[in-house]
């Protein structure tokens, strides 16, 4: 794993791996979707229950990516591992998108099930707070120009978040029970049909691989961008030297 610290090695390694990862992701997604399509409907909710297969894996990634981000940031902080910080940075927007997807599918499910797009239910609210934490984290990387400094601040932020997220979750639960939530329909039965379970598991796997693919692509783009920027600065420096020489020539010409 530590061989990956070197960006050049990572580029080579990931370019070999990426096509396979994409193939696995695609086949998992297609299989999963097919199974979902053929899975029996929930007798209470009808076709609405199918949204669960999109919603639940997204919710798992929404939280999982945050933990991944924290681990990556700590790795970067402790072992001065530039690629780890880059992984954390690029995981954040992906995490935010999955969180948004969870929220949106939740709302789409909520409209027919609860009769309203949004309720301040404990789980939805916690997820919304997580979304905002993602946004703040992304903003830090964008606002701080120096990437090394940004990584340090991001690590602090993610550490504080890691301690705070359980507290937030707890307080939101407490707030919600305190306020006697609106009458909700209980979601899902206690027993899940086995074919549904398999479909759900495949979707979880598909999402996980999708995340890895996206992360690889994103980190590769970032490395290429940094290379391009370094190249730009070098060209600029060389050009100034050339112009300097011609300035010199012009000045000497005048002196004579």
């Amino acid at each position: 794993m530590f061989g990956l610290a070197n960006p050049t090695k990572f580029m080579r390694f990931s370019s070999i791996l990426l096509p396979y990862l994409m193939a696995i992701t695609l086949s998992l997604l297609i299989t999963g979707m097919y199974m979902v399509w053929n899975a029996p409907e929930d007798y209470l909710q009808g076709p609405l229950s199918r949204i669960l297969y999109i919603h639940a894996p997204a919710a798992y990634l929404a939280q999982g990516i945050y933990v991944f981000m924290a681990l990556a940031n700590f790795t970067g902080f402790i072992w001065r591992h530039p690629l780890a910080d880059m992984a954390a940075k690029n995981a954040a927007p992906i995490g935010a998108v999955f969180t948004a997807l969870t929220l949106l599918t939740g709302m789409m499910w909520g409209k027919p099930a609860w009769g309203t797009w949004w309720v301040w239910d404990a789980r939805l609210t916690s997820l919304l707070v997580l979304f905002i934490i993602y946004l703040g984290y992304i903003a830090i990387w964008q606002v701080i120009e120096d990437q090394v400094k940004a990584a340090r601040i991001a690590t602090i932020l993610v550490a504080v978040g890691l301690v705070n997220i359980p507290i937030i979750k707890f307080s939101v639960d407490w707030w919600n029970t305190l306020h006697q939530p609106a009458s909700l329909i209980k979601t899902g039965g206690s027993s899940i049909h086995s074919s549904m379970l398999i479909a759900l598991l495949i979707m979880f796997a598909a999402y996980t691989f999708l995340f890895v693919c996206l992360l690889f692509i994103s980190v590769r783009t970032e490395i290429n961008r940094r290379r391009a920027r370094a190249f730009e600065m070098r060209v600029l420096q060389q050009n100034i030297q050339q112009v300097n020489q011609s300035t010199d020539a012009a000045l000497n010409h005048k002196d004579q």
């Binding site: 905002i132 703040g136 903003a139 707030w175 919600n176």
Partner: peptide, 21 residues
């Protein structure tokens, strides 16, 4: 930042007055 600000502040109100729609 402006959009983030609006979102955050809107979330604060239900926490303060309760989730009663």
């Amino acid at each position: 930042q402006a959009i983030g600000f609006y979102l955050v502040v809107v979330i604060l109100f239900p926490f303060a007055v309760g989730p009663d729609l």
